[in-house]
């Protein structure tokens, strides 16, 4: 099984540490962005995901807010992980998350007021986003700060990515535009970002309405599974060939 790791050169401890760190970072990125994606695989935080992705900008705004909260809460939880008794860890996590959500909410209220109004109740509701407490419980409370913060970043980015793609799909189908209202998030220069593909006489309302979010989400999950299968097949073929050559007759390995 672990032939390759055994053969790896062992020079000194720092090198091992570094390579282990790098491997962990790589693993975190892979898990957060693809393999264990908060939205597509864990299906956490569906409520904001489905409710606010009517446009790309809304999706991006909520995704960034969630990412900020995730980084903050993950690193804080990781910092206090040895101080918090196991029995009361959930209330503590919720307090930490709630404080970060409040910070993000106040920041958005101050700097991106229109977007703050467009997202409405879904900013305070980030507190209840299961993706965040899920990461605090599953990862941050067991790992050092640097990994926990990076995990927050990657999970958040993975979530944001799905929000943006879903928002783009729905906005394109329903409005024929992309980046509509981007200036609410990015400032006045972003008004030129708006791309109008077509101006429909009759908007395809389904895409904008909640059912469109569910259908779009289902299609995205299906797409991810298709890509996954493709990747697995591609990586498996040489392995399958090599196992065939080993003619084992006994059960022990």
């Amino acid at each position: 099984m672990s032939d390759t790791t055994l053969d790896a050169p062992i020079d000194n401890e720092i090198d091992i540490d570094k390579s282990a760190d790098n491997a962990e970072y790589k693993n975190i990125s892979w898990q957060g962005l693809w393999k264990n994606n908060a939205a597509l695989v864990q299906l956490l935080g569906l409520c904001p995901l489905l409710a606010v992705t009517a446009t790309l900008t809304n999706g991006l705004g909520l995704g960034l807010a969630t990412t900020l909260v995730l980084i903050g809460s993950n690193s804080t939880v990781s910092m206090v992980r040895n101080l918090v008794p196991n029995e009361i860890r959930i209330p503590v996590f919720v307090m930490v998350i709630a404080s970060f959500v409040t910070i993000v909410q106040l920041l958005m209220n101050a700097y991106t007021f229109e977007l703050y109004q467009a997202l409405g109740i879904f900013i305070p509701l980030i507190v209840t986003n299961c993706a965040i407490i899920g990461r605090a419980e599953a990862y941050a409370c067991k790992n050092p700060v640097k990994f926990a913060a990076f995990d927050g970043l990657m999970m958040g980015l993975g979530f944001t990515l799905v929000l943006v793609i879903l928002g783009a799909m729905r906005e394109l189908l329903g409005n024929g535009t992309l980046f509509d209202g981007a200036h609410l998030l990015l400032g006045d220069w972003a008004q030129s970002l708006k791309i109008t593909f077509f101006t429909p006489d009759n908007a395809f309302l389904l895409a904008i309405l909640p059912p469109g979010a569910f259908i779009g989400m289902g299609l995205l999950i299906a797409l991810k599974n298709v890509l996954n299968n493709h990747l697995e097949k591609r990586f498996e073929q040489p392995k399958a060939a090599s196992t065939i050559t080993r003619a084992r007759v006994t059960a022990d390995s």
Partner: peptide, 10 residues
């Protein structure tokens, strides 16, 4: 139903 909620006028 998809058509009805998407294009109520038509």
């Amino acid at each position: 139903v998809v058509l009805l909620i998407s294009f109520p006028v038509q």
